[in-house]
Computed example of a mutant assay.
Amino acid sequence: MTIPLPTLRQLRFLVTLADEGNFSRAAEICHVTQPTLSAAIKELEATLGVTLVERGARGATLTPAGEAALDRARSTLAEAEDLVQAARAAGEPLCGPFRLGVIPTIAPFLLPKLLPLLSNAHPKLKLYLREDLTDRLLEGLRSRNLDAALIALPYEAAGIEAISVGSDEFLFAAAPDHPLAQKATISASDLSNEKLLMLEDGHCLRDHALAVCTAAASRSDFAATSLHTLAQMVKSGLGATLLPRLAVEGGVTDGLGLVVKPFTPAIVGREIGIAWRRGSAREAEAKLIAKTLDGLV
């Protein structure tokens, strides 16, 4: 005996209704009329033999059975999307939509070089970009809201795989009148008594800088939200900082008159990598993007 199965359309309606909590808004998002969406939900309830939605004057609320069905519906829709993407990638990789996340300390300096290369090599690619902190990008990978993410390594995260595309060196940056700006060479040990400016908590670059000089950085009394702000604060004489070479070459210190110099020996601050959800159908395409990045970092 064949068991009646819900359709993907019905499951999508259920997920949208759960997200919006309102039949009218859910119908608008799904590009159907409200009666059409309502009828589809009733058909789904009849197929499953349970009430999924409590309908009220203030909107729609899922029943316990509806909440249980919602989790499976999201998973089923995600698997169906993976099937479509895997089939497309097998026929022509990086064709159609691809959702790429990038951390803020990489995005403005690497994307201007990467995007033209991707566009030329894969003209049918429709790239959707999201700039955010690492934790939220990784959650986006796990929830299948992102296909891949450019992040800084090392970064341990369950269910996530990544490969390195290059190393990013730390450079010392200070105003011209800073004592260390006068030195011919500078080493990590020179920072032991310095007040270093850092990015605010949540930026992985802060963690990488702290790993280089924990004692000095812990005394910083200013936390910037971006590398551009950080460079401006250094210009104002609030202290020195460590900047990734990628950002310096991308122009973050241009026109500020700062003294920027490498360490001796060089300090590799981080690895730039591309990450994806383990088992994702977009893994091969993420690795293609990694190849495109070869030589850019």
Score class of each variant (00 low, 15 high):
residue 198 M to H: 10
residue 259 V to T: 13
residue 76 T to P: 07
residue 44 L to R: 00
residue 55 R to I: 10
residue 231 A to Q: 04
residue 121 A to L: 13
residue 65 A to G: 07
residue 147 D to M: 00
residue 133 L to A: 04
residue 3 I to Q: 07
residue 12 R to Y: 02
residue 86 A to D: 10
residue 252 V to F: 02
residue 270 R to C: 15
residue 36 T to D: 00
residue 25 R to V: 13
residue 258 L to Q: 05
residue 278 R to H: 12
residue 157 A to W: 08
residue 97 P to V: 02
residue 187 S to C: 11
residue 198 M to F: 11
residue 268 V to K: 11
residue 152 A to V: 06
residue 135 D to S: 10
residue 167 S to H: 13
residue 59 G to A: 09
residue 67 E to V: 10
residue 29 I to G: 07
residue 239 G to R: 01
residue 46 A to C: 11
residue 81 E to K: 08
residue 30 C to L: 12
residue 48 L to T: 03
residue 111 L to E: 09
residue 89 A to K: 10
residue 213 C to D: 05
residue 289 I to R: 05
residue 162 A to P: 06
residue 32 V to S: 08
residue 263 F to A: 01
residue 271 E to Y: 02
residue 235 K to R: 13
residue 135 D to P: 03
residue 91 G to L: 11
residue 10 Q to N: 01
residue 73 A to Q: 06
residue 226 S to T: 13
residue 83 L to D: 15
residue 176 P to V: 03
residue 196 L to S: 04
residue 25 R to M: 11
residue 182 Q to H: 08
residue 177 D to L: 04
residue 140 G to A: 04
residue 34 Q to F: 00
residue 216 A to P: 02
residue 22 N to M: 07
residue 267 I to F: 05
residue 241 T to H: 06
residue 282 R to K: 14
residue 108 P to H: 02
residue 279 G to Q: 05
residue 190 D to C: 04
residue 273 G to Y: 08
residue 78 A to D: 11
residue 178 H to V: 00
residue 195 K to R: 14
residue 146 L to P: 02
residue 52 L to F: 04
residue 140 G to N: 04
residue 240 A to W: 00
residue 112 P to G: 08
residue 104 P to C: 02
residue 259 V to S: 09
residue 105 T to W: 08
residue 233 M to H: 15
residue 93 P to D: 04
residue 127 L to D: 03
residue 86 A to Y: 07
residue 69 A to R: 10
residue 128 Y to L: 15
residue 238 L to S: 12
residue 82 D to L: 02
residue 138 L to C: 12
residue 243 L to Q: 04
residue 31 H to W: 15
residue 260 V to Y: 03
residue 135 D to H: 14
residue 197 L to P: 01
residue 15 V to P: 03
residue 266 A to P: 11
residue 237 G to K: 05
residue 292 T to L: 09
residue 53 V to L: 08
residue 168 D to E: 09
residue 204 C to G: 13
residue 117 L to K: 14
residue 172 F to T: 00
residue 55 R to T: 08
residue 213 C to W: 00
residue 72 R to T: 07
